[in-house]
Design a protein around this nucleic acid. Structure first.
Length: 913
RNA sequence: GCCCGGGUGGUGAAAUUGGUAGACACAACGGACUUAAAAUCCGUCGCUCGAAUAAAAUCGGCGUACCGGUUCGAUUCCGGUUCCGGGCACCA
């Protein structure tokens, strides 16, 4: 064997070996248990970044580990190939998104291959191919038939300069990222999927997912947000010009806090609400305000953080229970798309209403009793006169409320409901409203239906044809797929499909007259909602999925970034349930076990353009300015020397230009070093700030491993030879006769292995990597001189050779999922066998783990004072006697009598004095 | 703003989930080898703390973002604060 480690040649040979034998080609015919290991497929943005390397290495470690554990493993790969960045690239480079995408796929595929992942490439797919997205269209049509898909208006960001719809990402501080123009909200029609019809099951089935991280399940449950409340109406007699009562004289609202209904002092409606529009007809200032509300982005984070503004409409509605006249305000924080676009306001017991009431001097009426004492401190901070009997700062109130059980807080100031608890009051009030025909109990979900229409070119066409005579007509199944022309070059304004007569013009499937195709495309989350089932289904052209999915599905291990904790994972769960209800699949949930990888972060630098848009700089394009502690204060662009802004750390992404390409790393050190370093850096679920400062160390370890194997080559050969000839019987008896130092080393080796196997079961790969390093450190303590050629037959020499042989075999197998190339090569070079992947997974031997004596820690009053060796089965009395007699204990007890002795078996003795 | 995570040496991190804080590495420093450098090997490495000493060994104190609590014992559990990251429905 070669004396030095040459990664490029051994990696090429190992990959060739796997290619030649089709090692990772998965088949459905196997007696072994199946293991479907899936990493979230990448968007083909151009190059891999470190987040990809992390994600796919984690998946590969799990795949290879299970392969050696005796599973029938399938690990596929594909491309989430539709999306916005391809259009941006087209605008910049004037290349069609299709060509840019296919070029990127080719490059990134070669990068993935060079990392040596155990992928079954025969199952590769790309979502931008018609044979894939045909089935998006097909299932969408089934959903239309079932009433799951429907059409209604949606609010979008509109750039008035580019005359185009903007993605949320393209809105920076309320302005278009290219034009800098103030963004407007626009209402346009679009298609929705009724995910709320599945809300109950999506929530309750979280309990069927013990293999998912708790935090992801919590996030999904909060997102679905089931709450039981009351929908009710204020009445009015406000009539439009035609004399008809607006909305039948009812202002509907929803509340989860119906018990506070007697504390309502005003109502707030969205700017788009019919009452607001009516009032604006005769009020110029109100009309201007409503117009102003239409500017700004539609993002929830922006809505929630913006200054709450409102204006009185001058209109009054009647409280259904008190008969009081309640003023109606327009509030910029009320969303038309939530519920009925109107809310009741109870400033005494709602933080947002409180803030609004304070700002506009609206009355506050307390209706929940409160035994919190109005202290002088509170008076100083909240001195307003009307606070005399109520302490309405809702932060204080909420803290007080949270310290009580809901039944302890009773209603007061609420007429006939006085003295009732929360639950009693909600029931009584709902009953009274129902008697009046003005309300009822209702389950309300925070979850909204999924709007899938995108006014963009590079996506899956929505299979609808618009006919003047017949309206919106679904494309018949036999005309699927509706193919997207692949040669368009978007220029940033409008949808290029509008200019494509060959795509646009068609015949109405119903009446045959000339008609126009829908030009909206589907949200790319549709593409990623079922790709896992397609991998598993043999790519039939006549079916979306087939019976083979029932062999592989559900996915046994899904791996992907925590940023997908809600949307992608929830949509996939929903899509699965729709497919199940259509009889296409038999499982309820797509992903049995989930590992959410922590983000790989890097610095983000940006600068405002002259127009008011935003421009990002890659970290290597700037020189950072740091303070004494090394904290980044700012930076200057290397190109022009002008300042750029440091935006903090953020996840690696194409759009923020802060991705790090692993190519240089792979070329300089090899794939094994890149993989090892990535796994060693941090546990998989932890966020990681990118720095390559440890790469050298990972590479140094692999060089040491190779050198050590080279040094031990002859001893291992000798030991393997001896085993074959049956010259020595390496049973427990034989080891008992070996020297204590040799048994000590063997004990250490098996202890490290035991811990590493435990860490693997927890998916904590960084400590598995460090276990490999510890194993090598331990192996280097074995003295190889004793078995130099020709002198290897002394009893001690035999033990040394056998110890080296056993230890290396453990180390190579343990390391092989992380560093498959070097371990593949060394396994063969040292003569262990043809293919390490066919070797069984190493397990520690009970006999090697056994120890006669154990070390116990001695504490006095919880402080470490010493330790002692005791027989492993020493009884309690002996332990106490030995501990009290210990010199360090005696010293710290200083003659005091122990009050208590705490013994933790196998660990410590704490003497409390 | 709301929901979910996280904060441990100069750095990445570990601690068998309430029991020796800092394993394994990186960087730095010192040494060996070398004409020299690289590579390699050996050693030191939480603290502008205290005692001891010529120097060390050694002994002790403090230390897991901050404040408080529970416990014989807290990086781990509970309450509060703060900073950082992820998500917030058209980035994927």
């Amino acid at each position: 064997m070669q004396p030095d480690y040459h990664p490029e040649s051994i990696e090429r040979q190992a990959q060739q070996h796997w290619d030649d034998r089709q090692t990772f080609r998965a088949t459905e015919q196997s007696a072994k248990p199946k293991y479907y290991c899936l990493s979230m497929f990448p968007y083909p943005s151009g190059k891999l970044h470190m987040g990809h390397v992390r994600n796919y290495t984690i998946g590969d470690v799990l795949s290879r580990y299970h392969l050696m554990k005796g599973y029938n493993v399938m690990q596929p790969m594909g491309w989430d190939a539709f999306g916005l960045p391809a259009e941006n690239a087209a605008i910049q480079n004037k290349v069609p998104p299709a060509q840019w995408t296919y070029d990127n796929i080719a490059y990134m595929k070669q990068q993935l291959k060079s990392l040596g992942f155990a992928i079954d490439w025969s199952r590769e797919l790309a979502t931008c191919k018609p044979d894939y997205y045909k089935w998006n269209q097909w299932l969408f049509l089934r959903m239309l038939e079932k009433g799951i898909a429907y059409k209604k208006t949606q609010v979008v960001n509109w750039d008035p300069v580019d005359q185009t719809v903007l993605a949320n990402e393209q809105v920076i501080d309320g302005r278009g990222w290219r034009t800098g123009a103030i963004v407007e909200k626009r209402e346009i029609p679009g298609y929705y999927l009724g995910i709320t019809q599945y809300a109950e099951e999506l929530l309750s089935d979280l309990d069927k997912l013990p293999g998912w991280p708790e935090r992801v399940k919590t996030m999904q449950a909060n997102w679905i947000g089931k709450s039981i409340g009351v929908r009710f109406a204020f009445t009015h007699d406000i009539r439009n010009d035609a004399g008809a009562a607006i909305n039948d004289g009812k202002l509907w609202v929803f509340t989860t806090r119906a018990d506070t209904i007697m504390g309502v002092t005003f109502c707030a409606v969205a700017a788009e609400h019919p009452l607001a529009a009516h009032a604006a007809l005769s009020d110029k200032k109100l009309a201007d305000f409503i117009d102003k509300c239409k500017h700004g982005s539609v993002m929830e984070a922006d809505m929630a953080t913006m200054e709450k503004e409102g204006m009185d409409t001058g209109l009054k509605v009647t409280h259904p229970l008190t008969g009081e006249q309640v003023p109606v305000w327009v509030g910029n924080y009320v969303l038309m798309s939530y519920g009925d676009g109107a809310v009741m306001a109870v400033p005494a017991h709602d933080e947002r209403d409180f803030e609004f009431a304070n700002q506009y001097e609206l009355p506050i009426k307390q209706v929940l009793e409160n035994t919190l004492v109005y202290t002088t401190e509170l008076k100083a901070e909240f001195p307003r006169e009307s606070y005399e009997h109520a302490y309405f700062d809702t932060k204080i109130w909420k803290a007080w409320y949270a310290s009580k059980s809901p039944d302890e807080v009773l209603l007061f100031n609420s007429g006939k409901y006085n003295g009732m608890s929360h639950a009693e009051a909600v029931d009584a009030i709902a009953t009274d409203l129902a008697k009046l025909g003005l309300g009822e109990k209702k389950v309300q979900w925070r979850l909204r239906d999924w709007g899938i229409s995108r006014q963009r070119y590079w996506g899956c066409p929505i299979p609808i044809i618009h006919c003047d005579a017949c309206g919106s007509v679904p494309v018949p199944d036999d005309q699927l797929p509706v193919k997207l022309p692949e040669d368009c070059v978007p220029d940033g304004s409008g949808n290029p499909l509008h200019k494509r007569a060959d795509f646009l013009n068609c015949a109405c499937p119903k009446c045959g007259k000339p008609a126009k195709r829908e030009t909206d495309t589907m949200d790319t989350f549709v593409d990623s909602s079922w790709y896992y089932a397609r991998y598993a289904s043999g790519f039939k052209s006549d079916a979306m999925v087939d019976e083979e999915t029932s062999y592989w599905m559900p996915v046994d291990q899904y791996i992907g970034g925590i940023e997908h904790a809600i949307l992608h994972l929830l949509y996939s769960r929903f899509w699965t349930k729709v497919m199940r209800n259509l009889g296409l699949v038999k499982y309820d949930e797509p992903f049995a076990n989930l590992l959410t990888q922590g983000m790989v972060l890097n610095h983000i630098y940006s600068r405002r353009t002259d127009k008011g848009g935003i421009e990002y700089f890659a970290p290597e394009e700037v020189a950072t300015i740091r303070d004494a502690a090394g904290k980044v204060l700012g930076a200057k662009a290397l190109a022009d020397g002008q300042p750029v802004e440091f935006q903090g750390m953020g996840t690696m992404s194409k759009s923020k230009r802060n991705g790090v390409d692993p190519q240089a790393l792979i070329e300089q050190y090899g794939a094994d070093t890149a993989r090892l370093f990535m796994m060693f850096a941090a546990p998989p679920e932890q966020t990681l700030e990118w720095a390559d400062s440890g790469v050298e160390g990972a590479h140094r370890f692999l060089k040491r491993l190779w050198a050590s194997a080279y040094k031990n080559e002859r001893h291992i050969e000798f030991a393997l030879e001896s085993r074959k000839k049956g010259r020595f019987d390496w049973n427990d008896e034989a080891w008992k006769n070996a020297a204590p130092s040799q048994n000590g080393l063997r004990h250490q080796i098996h202890r490290i292995l035991q811990q590493a196997n435990y860490d693997l079961s927890k998916h904590q790969f960084n400590t598995v990597a460090s276990a490999a390093m510890k194993l090598l450190n331990t192996i280097e303590e074995i003295e190889p001189e004793a078995v130099e050629a020709g002198k290897g037959y002394t009893p001690s020499g035999n033990v040394q050779a056998e110890l080296a042989c056993e230890s290396f075999s453990i180390l190579l197998r343990l390391l092989s999922p992380i560093c498959p190339h070097i371990t593949h090569a060394l396994w063969r070079e040292l003569g262990y066998g043809e293919d390490i992947l066919h070797a069984p997974w190493p397990e520690p031997l009970a006999a090697a783990l056994e120890q006669d004596e154990i070390e116990l820690v001695l504490q006095v009053n919880g402080k470490l004072r010493g330790n002692m060796l005791v027989a492993k089965n020493a009884d309690k009395a002996t332990l106490e006697r030995l501990a009290l007699a210990h010199v360090a204990v005696q010293k710290h007890l200083a003659g005091a009598t122990p009050k208590k002795i705490v013994i933790v078996p196998g660990r410590l003795i704490n003497i409390v004095a």
